[in-house]
Design a protein around this nucleic acid. Structure first.
Lengths: 219, 219
DNA sequence: CGTTTCTTTGAATCCGGTCAAGGTCCGTGG
DNA sequence: CCACGGACCTTGACCGGATTCAAAGAAACG
């Protein structure tokens, strides 16, 4: 990727979230292949990342060996913001993706005493908190059907296309929703059998009856 | 409460989290009784709150009528920080409590374009994100026993006294952990029957076998 | 003391987890 | 082009634990 095309990518995003003044140097264009690690748990958190294309998951291993998915990020999303000095989750590419790495200015750390905190970092943190709170509601649902229906609905709302693509596998969805991959598979199968959604293959679906899906998601 | 005693309360807390420069006016001392609402969902979020004494829960009603507990806050904790202009959770007093309300400076809003974000607000947001992420791990546990054991352990770690007091009821614990109140009650009963914890009454317990409790919590 | 609210306990049901087997998709190499 | 292998997904049967419904017991309050 040339500097020219990098600048074009940069200007394609709203300046409010990516101003030259906030992040110098402009950024580093990176490419990752399927499953590749972008950063590891405990790595120094001195950068923000913006997805140019592709999708990313953040995850973390719990003490009992289970894996928790922090969140999924898609084109245009910022990720990698942390309160402290190191990453609490790792990040992996869900498919091939293009990522822009932006250096955090030194002051934007909660454990320092900055005169000002960068607006970009602050906005990203606040957004992350919102995401985490939504994720909490999702996890506190008792029924697998509600969780899966809500997940599909959120994803579809994010892309607004007829045929929605799932960039993550069943195990990822399971770890995100606090279920097993078998339950994910069965629930998706039942939603399809009920004519609520229709899968063209295991990674692509369309919503046949939006109202019914909304009723199942209950939110 | 006189202004004198208010100033004493203020200086009792670490200045790093409550400097006069960050929050003017100093604060408003408020009292709430058991169950009383401190602020409602959708209220304007123009203040931060610090607990002088007592305990608080934040909660939110989901579309299906279930209630989700955001978190529990205890003496010295800050709560009420929001990314946007309005509260996404409501806050209620768990018992009688004394609270200090601090006016947010106008610039500390994510939807404005501040030259600087107040350090206090930034720190509180980052802390809140950490809390939410911990809460997510807790909710993603599959077994009720793990959830309850972890909850008790966290609470005990917060106070470091022999006899720990539960300021919240069983229903609150249930909504926090994504379980039913019956399951909470049964699980606590079994922990006591196994000699892991000992309840002097339904709101006060001591940890009889810390190692065993830690093993159940698995983290 | 009586009423209300909260908590405990019981029994039955159901949903999701677990274990196991089989199927599909895709890339690699013969 | 087809065979093979591996990763991922689906499906089935069984079991255990959490929910649900119900009732009784304990604590808080006026």
């Amino acid at each position: 990727m040339t500097l020219q095309s990098l600048r074009q990518d940069l200007t394609a995003f709203p300046m409010s979230l990516l101003s030259v003044g906030d992040c110098l140097p402009l950024g580093l264009a990176l490419s990752f292949e399927t499953g590749e690690e972008i950063y590891a748990q405990e790595d120094r958190a001195d950068r923000l990342y913006r997805i140019v294309s592709g999708a990313v998951r953040t995850s973390r291993l719990l003490a009992d060996g289970r894996r928790q998915i922090g969140d999924f990020y898609y084109e245009g999303d910022l990720f990698g913001v942390e309160a402290g000095a190191s990453h609490r989750f790792s990040a992996e590419a869900l498919g091939d993706c293009q990522i822009l790495a932006l250096r955090r200015t030194g002051s934007a750390r909660v454990d320092e005493t900055p005169e000002r905190v960068d607006h970009l970092v602050w906005a990203a943190t606040a957004k992350e908190l919102e995401r985490a709170q939504e994720h909490m509601s999702l996890l506190s649902r008792t029924s697998a059907c509600e969780k899966v229906a809500t997940f599909l609905l959120n994803l579809a709302g994010r892309f607004r296309v007829d045929l929605v693509h799932l960039p993550m596998g069943r195990q990822d969805m399971a770890d995100y929703l606090g279920l097993t991959l078998e339950t994910i598979s069965r629930t998706l199968g039942r939603l399809q059998a009920d004519g609520v959604v229709e899968f063209t293959n295991c990674r692509d679906f369309r919503i046949s009856r939006p109202a019914a899906l909304g009723r199942l998601a209950l939110s």
